[in-house]
Simulated scan of single mutants.
Amino acid sequence: MSPTRLVSLLGAAVRQQRNLRDLSQRQLAELAGVTQGAVAHIERGERTPSIPVLERLLAAMDLQLTVGVEPLDAHLDARIDDLAARPIAERIAELDLGRLLDQLPDLPQVITGSTAALLQGAPVPVDALEIALRWQDSKQFTRWLEANYGQRWNARWGEFGGVWLEPEEPGEHRWSTRHGEIRATMCDELPATIEVRHDGRGYQVVPLVELELTEPRAAELLRRHRARQLASGG
């Protein structure tokens, strides 16, 4: 279990429990005696919460922290099985994908990676919007990031911030924004796409067969999904 994944899991757990109780971030912060900003950073996985702060947040919701261990990557298999049992419309709605896409700048882009796989029915975990962008549009994208409190992933620190925003600068093409996390595949020309429609909205996505050839992260998740199907006799 990597420290980065653990931070993300803790943030997701706090957010889920807060939403179940119809609490705003500010209300939870007041109950726990922390700032609303701290709650926001923890829920987005941008800050590693100290044990005392985490315990105060959970105690404010009548919860306590437990600790367990599992085989490495077992969480992925469990997550895939859980997603496979849920309707695709529910999985898409959970991401609030349309809202984030509507906030992006008006420039050519297509959906790729795990996001594209999910839109085509694959029960793969998605923790960020993944898009393909052209290098020639990087300056416009950078201006949008600046206007939307963008921070770039800092692999050295294991968190967002402290590195240049521009895609041309060294580092992963991964940013947090006030609207959600975005991962980008930068390319000279956008890949060929197909259209899929959900809830009356069309999405231009990279086909599954192409994802398996060009997107290592998505390809690995798709292989795990097929392995789970075979193991269960599906």
Rank of each mutant, 00 (worst) to 15 (best):
S2N: 15
I51V: 08
H225N: 08
A128M: 04
D106I: 04
T142Y: 03
Q229W: 03
L165P: 04
L101G: 01
S24Y: 11
H41V: 07
E70I: 06
A231Y: 00
G121N: 06
R201K: 12
I42Y: 05
A74S: 11
T48V: 14
E189P: 04
Q103E: 13
A122T: 07
Q151T: 12
V110M: 03
V39I: 10
G234E: 12
D188N: 09
A147M: 09
E172Y: 13
A12W: 10
N154P: 06
G233M: 01
G113N: 02
P3G: 10
A155K: 12
A219W: 04
Q103F: 00
G180N: 00
D188S: 11
L104V: 01
E130V: 02
R217I: 10
W164E: 15
G234R: 09
T193W: 03
A147L: 10
M61R: 06
T177H: 08
S24I: 14
A89G: 14
L145M: 05
T177K: 02
E169L: 12
Q64L: 09
E146W: 07
G161S: 07
R174W: 13
Q229I: 06
A85H: 12
G37L: 06
E189T: 13
G162T: 09
R143T: 13
L165Y: 02
T4Y: 15
L57A: 08
A132F: 06
Q17C: 10
V14R: 03
Q151N: 11
Q140Y: 00
A155H: 12
R178Y: 01
G113W: 00
A116M: 07
A85T: 04
D188L: 14
R174K: 15
R26E: 15
A93E: 09
Q103C: 12
L190P: 04
P191V: 07
G171D: 11
Q151V: 04
P125E: 02
E189C: 11
P191K: 00
R79A: 06
E30M: 13
L58E: 03
E30Y: 10
L107V: 08
D199M: 11
R178W: 04
T193M: 05
R152Q: 07
M1W: 09
V39T: 08
I92N: 06
A32S: 09
Q16G: 12
E90I: 05
G37N: 10
G121H: 03
L31Q: 14
L65W: 05
I111E: 06
